[in-house]
Design a protein around this nucleic acid. Structure first.
Lengths: 319, 319
DNA sequence: CTGTTAGCGCGTTCAA
DNA sequence: TTGAACGCGCTAACAG
């Protein structure tokens, strides 16, 4: 009984011969250890829960891959739970995961509200925010500086001589992908001495169609922008197609830049110039951070900000 | 103790007043039921495991959404496990899921090898194949008829007068997306009296880049095809861009059609004409089937074939 | 190095 | 309608 447990758990205190016999019996009986019983007895499940806000978003897929690789490396299982961009579902999923006694939690991409913080507080396992942050900075997190990324993107446009720059933003309620990127846009304009015109900002929902719609609005403006900054790749691609459908050319007539640099950025013509966020790394680093937390190691920086970079392709040109 | 259990599990045999008191205590103490202990005691976890072959594939994301909706409806939790298109990882994930005592298993999209069947056999929980099938048809499954879907796609091309039709196929080792679709292509040619030319078939890996590469090959052929059938949307988009980069036009110079009709099909210019597989439904129906199996209900058709349909957009034209 | 014992936190009898 | 006792399959601590 106990010896079998030792064998299964690779405890060295077993005579090799006995170990062999046990393995044979396991094979013969088709024995499969019961992780549920094990979890109950050991109070550890060696699994971490990952809540993913939107499974159909390519960004998160890449982040998840980073998470997985590191999780495997440290012999954790991960269970992915999709929350479908709905806050109540996020909360539900977090609680389910906690009930399942995961050893740690990775919360990916969503907005961290008061309600989230509340749910996190009642958890007695470590939690890491992944590709997002909380406003008061209490929860460990791994993310890029969205404000700076947006700033840099708009700077690219400004350096090319553009002064009439539209923005397709995500919802301003979203502090990371939404609000912070919008702030970066504003700061870039301000730094360049360009006055902010709210006519040139449209709110989208991160999806292709909303990029199309926003661009359509810009194109119908009496004096339309000569460049557009999109908060995400997908909306940027929508914008590019909208411009082309309108009979104009990118980047000759209108330049487009975005933040993300997902796989999609190369899957459009002209290929999209974008500020890249290191998605795989965000996943990997956050999982690594979580393993440390789970082992109760002390971590110096519980708030990791990863660098971003500009990937130049063909969607940006001179004014 | 036992009464709390009854309250938490909605057992009617509790005096309303007691129930209320228990709920209050739960609230006050911040009690969270331990799903692990519950699972051990009840021998049910009310969770089903879903193995997803490639989390970055848009198709599977949509299928997963169908699975989830139905799972929620029947109060099952789902835990997603990505297998990264690697067979050994699939097997590993299946075993992990089984150790975790899931009540059922959904195996999505991958090829079902002998090794898989073996792992499935040792499971004593029901399994449903989702967006794939096993060759000997022993395991319940929900899928489309890939051969017929491919046949129909090629027919569209033939009806437009094309006789020189290239195919960008997936690996022929993959019985569903690969081999079956290839067979459908061949049968369509044969039915139309067009002789099969293996020069006109390239094997890709379902990804954008491989679509580009395959098309590049076709374009350099002494007599290049006037139409191309791609096994997936993503490769088709690669093909379209390759054609355009070459200075040719779709569909004027070369027509392109594919099978899938993912969200991406509309995210390209010209928009992609494709045979649509009902991804959401595949997920939903397979989950529904699994719930029946888990409740040990008898099911008439354990082998469900869902219909596909042609979605006409702008990527196909006359010869 | 191996076996024995006592829980882990719950659901499920059975009596009360 | 409630509570007491048992056991789910395993790990942990201890004794041998």
């Amino acid at each position: 009984m106990a010896t079998v447990s030792r064998v299964v758990n690779n405890n060295p205190n077993v005579k090799p011969q006995t170990r062999k016999k046990v393995f044979e019996a396991i094979e013969r009986l088709g024995y499969r250890p019961n992780a549920v019983a094990r979890g109950l007895a050991s109070k550890k499940t060696t699994t971490v829960g990952v809540v993913i806000p939107d499974i159909s978003n390519a960004i998160f897929a890449e982040v998840a891959r980073g998470i997985e690789d590191i999780a495997n490396m440290y012999h954790y299982n991960i269970i992915l739970c999709n929350a479908d961009k709905k806050k109540d579902k996020e909360i539900r999923v977090i609680n389910t995961l906690l009930e399942k006694q995961v050893d740690g939690l990775l919360f990916m991409g969503g907005t961290v509200t008061e309600e989230h913080s509340q749910a996190f507080k009642t958890a007695n396992v470590p939690i890491v925010l992944c590709a997002t942050t909380d406003e008061n900075g209490e929860i460990p997190s791994v993310d890029i500086d969205h404000e700076a990324a947006a700033f840099d993107a708009v700077q690219v446009l400004i350096k090319q001589g553009h002064t009439s720059i539209g923005m397709i933003s995500g919802t301003l309620q979203d502090p990371a992908n939404g609000y912070a990127r919008f702030q970066g846009y504003k700061r870039a304009l301000q730094t360049a001495g360009i006055s902010y015109d709210e006519e040139l900002v449209r709110i989208g929902n991160y999806r292709y169609e909303s990029g199309v719609d926003a661009m359509k609005y810009f194109l119908e403006l009496p004096k339309r922008p000569t460049a557009v900054f999109s908060a995400t790749d997908e909306m940027a691609i929508g914008a590019i197609h909208c411009i082309q459908d309108f009979g104009l050319k990118v980047p000759e007539d209108i330049s487009v830049i975005s933040v993300d640099n997902s796989r999609m950025a190369s899957m459009v013509r002209p290929q999209l110039t974008a500020v890249a966020q290191p998605m795989y790394d965000i996943g990997a680093v956050s999982m690594r951070l979580l393993t440390k937390l789970m082992k109760k190691e002390t971590v110096e920086h519980a708030k990791v900000v990863l660098p971003h970079e500009i990937v130049t392709r063909q969607s940006v040109g001179d004014k």
